[in-house]
């Protein structure tokens, strides 16, 4: 394995998360009860999604500045991983909501924001695939990626603070209410769950990038 230390770290962290996450102590909260353990999975997915979309947009900017096709591949593949994590976050959230809020979908502003984000990145893929010319596809895709990111993220960070939400921490931190989780959970969430899942995503993405670069190389040599 190439650069194996962080891959080993990723596996170890995820093993810790999936054992300690289910066995470790959690605060007993009304309604939430044991479902609070989903924090390690559901919330970590959103951290991963935002990081990947962020990395994708950084690579789009780098592509526009340098014109190096490699960055375009990075941007696309990180956007794909962002979509994957977004979908997983949505599904884990809907399962969670089914037990705590009574139904899977309740038009919560954050649920809407998540769907919007996923729709935007699907549109990004449609836009890219509608063009045949590689250079043009990369350039216009990058422009849309930057534009969409800049339009999307302020709104999904700001709007949930303005409107009521079923999610915890409605007035203030849009992701989670830091008072709901205690030190035990925090010890598992920030140092293990978030980096563990993010590293897994980076791993998946790097494999896909390498595959794609190899494919391109093969096409160029053929």
């Amino acid at each position: 394995m190439r650069l194996s230390w962080w891959k080993i770290l990723c596996v170890v962290l995820l093993l810790i998360v999936s054992t300690a996450g289910f066995l470790g102590g959690v605060p007993a909260k009304p309604i939430l009860n044991e479902t609070i353990r989903n924090l390690y999975f559901h919330v970590a997915m959103w951290f991963g999604m935002m990081i990947f979309f962020g990395v994708s947009v950084v690579n789009s900017v780098r592509y526009l500045r340098t014109g190096n096709m490699r960055y375009d591949t990075y941007a696309v593949e990180y956007a794909n991983s962002g979509i994957l994590f977004g979908l997983l976050g949505l599904v884990t959230g809907m399962i969670w909501a089914n037990y705590t809020w009574g139904k899977a979908w309740s038009n919560d502003p954050k649920q809407i924001g998540a769907v919007i984000a996923i729709l935007i990145y699907f549109a990004y893929q449609v836009l890219r695939n509608s063009m045949i010319d590689i250079d043009k596809r990369a350039r216009i895709g990058a422009v849309y990626n930057i534009f969409a990111f800049a339009m999307l993220f302020p709104t999904i960070w700001i709007i949930p603070r303005l409107v009521e939400s079923l999610h915890p921490g409605g007035m203030g931190n849009p992701a989670l209410n830091t008072n709901d989780i205690d030190a035990r959970m925090r010890m598992l969430f920030y140092p293990a769950a978030v980096p563990g899942w993010t590293l897994l995503g980076v791993w998946i993405t790097s494999l896909r990038i390498r595959l794609k670069l190899l494919e391109e190389q093969k096409l160029n040599n053929a």
Partner: peptide, 26 residues
Amino acid sequence: IAARAQQNAALMAILGFPLIIPQLLL
């Protein structure tokens, strides 16, 4: 963007509707 991609107004709707939802709600 749609014009550069040599596409019609349909692509514009696909690209734009998700982007505009937050503004529209506000």
